[in-house]
Design a protein around this nucleic acid. Sequence first.
DNA 1: GCGATAGTTCGATGGCTGTCGAACCATTCG
DNA 2: CGAATGGTTCGACAGCCATCGAACTATCGC
Lengths: 101, 101
Amino acid sequence: MGDYPSPDMADVELVDVLKALGDPVRLRIVDKLADGEPKPKTLDGWGLDLTKSTMSHHFRTLREAGLTRTIVHGRTHAIQLRRDELDQKFPGLIEAVLGER
Amino acid sequence: MGDYPSPDMADVELVDVLKALGDPVRLRIVDKLADGEPKPKTLDGWGLDLTKSTMSHHFRTLREAGLTRTIVHGRTHAIQLRRDELDQKFPGLIEAVLGER
DNA sequence: GCGATAGTTCGATGGCTGTCGAACCATTCG
DNA sequence: CGAATGGTTCGACAGCCATCGAACTATCGC
């Protein structure tokens, strides 16, 4: 049973969010998720040259930190930024982090 | 020759700022610096039960990440958030991080 | 059912990092 | 000068973490 629980936003701590964002790979991933739409994990456009297992590790870290949710769809997974909830809990944070582009 | 160089804000990378903030001790320190005033490193009010050397390590990390500057004043040091520069380079970030209090 | 595909998990490895105590450095004050 | 004070630096240590390859799980399509 593939089960990919995201924490309740009430339990999400700012410091853990910041720690998750304080890695170049994960910051990049979050950046690609900026528009709020779910993106397949297989996306070529991550622009990252990493193994499947390493990507999986980062996806998990983001999810457990409360930044993303995983949407299972058959044998493929999509990942989505929890934009609304994050904006409510940490106003301005996501926007600031996605800043310049 | 006590020299405590802060990096040029132009060279400061967002991911390094986030990494520096992604630690409970340093997030706390930054929080205490919120008002922009220099605070003595000896401040009792940090609320942290750590050794001198450990505090020194965190102060250095914050400075090298571009978050703070050190002001030497005789044999005492003060630390100050680089609020204006940070606001200009990463609009909204500091405010979002200082959020709830 | 069987092969292929999407993804996770596990174990190993090397590097980074938070913490401490002790030694050291610089400045002030008597 | 000499002692006390504020801080840094160094070495050691333990725990964490990014990365990889290999093994495993589950689903789709023939």
